[in-house]
Design a protein around this nucleic acid. Sequence first.
DNA 1: AGCCAGGCTACCG
DNA 2: CGGTAGCATGGC
Length: 195
Amino acid sequence: MERHGPQGWWPINGIYHKDDYSYPHNEVEIFEICAGAILTQNTSWKQVEIALENLKKLNLLDCGVIVNVADTVLKDAIRPAGYFNQKAKKLKFFSEFFRCLNGRTPTREELLNVWGIGPESADSILLYGYSVPTMVIDTYTKRLFFEFGIIDDIKISYGELKSLCESELQVDLKLFQEFHALIVQHCKSASRVRI
DNA sequence: AGCCAGGCTACCG
DNA sequence: CGGTAGCATGGC
C-alpha cells in the first residue's frame, strides 16, 4: 500500500474509485463486475476494457438482453478479450443465473455451479460485486508468495492459499479488496515479482 | 518469434 | 485426487 497506493478495485465504467468505497451501488454495476470477471479470465484487463465498451454500446451489459442476443453479435463484441466462443457461452449461462437471483446475493457454491465460473471468478464476484469479505487468489498471488518464501510449493491449491490468507488477516472488506488488487498491481508493474 | 495476460472446462491416469 | 491440452486475441 505504501508503494502503490489504494487501487480502488473493482473499476466500474473504467473508473477506479480510490477514495470512495461505496461502489457498487446498483444491479447494473454489479453485473458489469461479473461480466468483467468472466472476460478477464487469463486475459489482460486492457483487452477486457475494450470488450466491455463494445458491450455497453450495444446495450449488452444487461443480463436480460444477453440471454436473448444472437451468439454472433455477442462474440463480435467480446472478441478483443480472446476466447470469445467460450466467454460468450459463459456470459449467456451467467446472465441466466444472474436474472434468477432477483437481486439476491449468491452463495459461493451457487456461483461455482455456474458453467464458466471457477474459484477466482466466484471470489472476485463476491468480494468486489457483493461486498463479501472473501479472499481472491490468482496466479500472481501464488508466484509472489512463493518468491517471498511464504509458501514452499508453487503448486499449492487455490483453497489452501485462500485459507492461509484469510487466517492471517483481519476479516475486513476493504483490506481484502485492496490486498488482492495490490498484489496484481505490483506483479503487473514489476518485471520481477520480488521487490 | 515467442511468451504472457486479473482461468476454466474436459479429459486423462 | 493431480496434471494438462485447448481455448483466442493483442502487447511487448
